[in-house]
Design a protein around this nucleic acid. Sequence first.
DNA 1: TTAAATTCCTGTAAGC
DNA 2: TGCTTACAGGAATTTA
Length: 274
Amino acid sequence: MPELPEVETIVADLRPHLTGRTIVRCELLFPTIVRHPEPEDFIDSVAGMRIAGMRRRGKFILVDLENDLVLVVHLGMTGQLRLVDADAPLATHTHAIFTLDTGRHLRYRDPRRFGRLLLGTEESLLASKKMPRLGPEPIDPGFAAEELYRRLRNRRTSLKAVLLDQGAIAGVGNIYADESLHRARLRPDRLAGSLSRKSVQRLHESLRVSLLMAIKNRGSSVDTYRDAWGEIGGQQEKLLVYGRAGEPCFTCGRPLAMIRIAGRSTVFCRRCQK
DNA sequence: TTAAATTCCTGTAAGC
DNA sequence: TGCTTACAGGAATTTA
């Protein structure tokens, strides 16, 4: 599923192809995928808009348009945003088609429909809570270990639950939470507030390493993830624990354990992670 | 206020 | 082989 590295890959790939282009028209094949504004208004507002740029914030894709308007795309679990020729066969579960002035299509498809599209100014979307307030970007050079420590210190829940909390840290999902905790040698069910500064420093570094390596390898295609060209990523081959329950730990050889935390399957090594 | 549980949704895979 | 059932999970919503 798309987390920070997967979304970053898509945004970086699409940015040079979309910046400066104009959205000629928009077609919604499944209108309820648009959560704001009303689908008719969404179509009318987006048509004729020039794309000024593209950004990522957490797991959100932000397409900057004119007049401070932002087209927001969240991929949920199975969302895909692809740039294709207009005559490319229509994939099943394609919910939105943006026709560009180049004649090409930017298509959104999402079999499980956990994703969504939004349109508005960033300010109004945040104020109306259509878009949540997100925590800091973990790969931002300005994100210090001390900041992570402050955000973990007063939490009375598991470490894993806090890493998944987008309001605490933006962009980390189930894959990279488990990967980072393993790399930091920390148990996922440990109380977040119980960590020493030293342990938090290890987690801070592990988050950065896990996420940056995944970006370098163009993300993990463990479920249905595909990049903007429909290609799979490479990080799934390099995952240390995610999806490897019962298989031997690469460090100690003991079978990896699986438990449920915050409703998510969580894989870790009982020997290496304390 | 915070945390945990529930809900949405469909493709996939395991089990009978 | 073909059917049923469990499972995957991001995040909004509801409950505790």
